[in-house]
Amino acid sequence: MSDALLEIEDYSGAFVGETGELTPVLHGVSYRLKTGMMTAVVGESGSGKSLVALSILGIQPPAFERSSGRMLFRGSDLLELDERAMQGIRGAEISMVFQDARAALNPVFTVGRQLADVWQLQHGGSRRAAMTQAIEALRRVSIPEPERRALQYPHQFSGGMAQRAMIAMASLICEPSLLILDEPTTGLDVTIQSDIMELIVELSRTRGLTTCLITHDLGVVAETCQEVVVMNAGRVVETGSAEAIFTRPSDGYTQRLLSASQLVEAA
């Protein structure tokens, strides 16, 4: 029995151009998300870190074509599941938080309704009970006046508040075993970013979630993650414990990324 909730093995693929030519973008990507741990996948733009994450949920862009690989979730290959089976996984087993929460929420429905809809879809029950759950979830992620906020639309939320609502949906309403966060605090102010990361860590810990944090910000990683996967140009260049990656990076790219992230000398 493996201690990994998700194992990605030799995942490769390319983008298909309009004329059918292939541009390879992922080259034998392999990493594991250990059960109950918070794993960071770090890299710069174009490294493929988000593309792999989207592939876990089967929502990669249509122009992407896989050439090899497996993604074993609880022992079964997600890439072999049909759309119907995948729908049973999305949300209920694996959920995702995106960078721009206001864009990820539906602008024409209230935030409370969107949370309640997802609750009903996953757990059934009455409309009223679902709305109660939605409000409680908003309260749990420290949104002030959740009863009033639940009746508002996404554009009435600040970026930080909308991200709290997304986290409420992905973790508390869906109750998944694996939570994937794709740059959840990029674009937010640093004081808000810190609050959101503390919330994510606290929720993961109390609910025993396995978490995958996709980010380019090594500062956030140092403070929150136990395991790190470093990607560059479609390849995994190094994996290890966060302590090992920060204190004894072995790969040249990891070393350069680390020193570029540490502009200021240690005090």
Binding site: V190, T191, Q193, S194, M197, D217, L218, G219, V220, V221, A222, E223, A242, E243, F246, T247, L258, S261, Q262, A266
Partner: peptide
């Protein structure tokens, strides 16, 4: 103080 103390540091053990 709030601003400076909120910024994460990309070093282990800080």
């Amino acid at each position: 103080r709030a601003l400076l103390s909120a910024a994460p540091v990309a070093r282990w053990g800080v």
